[in-house]
């Protein structure tokens, strides 16, 4: 091969770049995000809807509250909720001092597959999620999605961005 050394060296670099994710994750566990999900109760809307559209719902709430002065949201099943971030925090955030039963951690990965933190509400363990990682943070960090909420709003006490 003419100038084979350079070609093979380039190929090695190329394959190394392609295999970068494999090396980067070497030996790491595929641990999904851990969030507070209360058992037995439904969020503002059904889980599937919330998972796909929570950001739009928050925007909608913002517009209704700030621009139209509406303070109550009626969900698809006719149930009313206060339009307030505290409505979210009630279930999805718990201060470490108030170790309540609502704070439940869910290992997002199980070998059987079919695991999702937001859906996996049945198997309740008593471990409490670290308050600084609660609420939006774990999932959003996991998916590298940066919410713009905190450019105006204060974070819940003890939480980090």
């Amino acid at each position: 091969m003419y100038k084979g050394g350079r070609i093979i060296a380039s190929l090695v670099v190329f394959v190394a770049i392609l295999a970068f994710p494999f090396f980067y994750n070497l030996g790491k566990a595929n641990a999904g995000p851990v969030i507070n999900v209360p058992t037995g109760s439904q969020c503002v809307e059904p889980v599937a809807y919330m998972r796909a559209n929570h950001m739009q719902l928050l925007n909608q709430w913002r517009d209704e509250y700030v621009r139209q002065g509406k303070t109550v949201y009626v969900n698809s099943q006719g149930k009313s909720f206060n339009i307030n971030i505290d409505t979210c925090l009630q279930c999805h955030y718990s201060n470490s001092s108030t170790t309540s039963a609502t704070a439940v951690s869910h290992p997002a990965v199980s070998t059987t597959g079919a695991s999702n933190p937001a859906v996996n509400t049945t198997e309740a363990s008593n471990s409490v999620v670290n308050p600084s990682d609660q609420f939006c943070v774990t999932c959003h960090n996991y998916a590298s999605v940066e919410p713009t909420c905190w450019s105006c709003h204060n974070l819940p006490e003890g939480a980090n961005q």
């Binding site: 994710p21 494999f22 980067y24 994750n25 070497l26 790491k28 566990a29 595929n30 999904g32 997002a108 990965v109 199980s110 070998t111 597959g113 079919a114 695991s115 999702n116 996991y142 998916a143």
Partner: peptide, 15 residues
């Protein structure tokens, strides 16, 4: 991400 990361960690899981 669970699926993709499972592939990248060579421990595939199927959500």
């Amino acid at each position: 991400k669970e699926l993709a990361l499972g592939i990248a960690t060579l421990h595939p899981v199927l959500p």
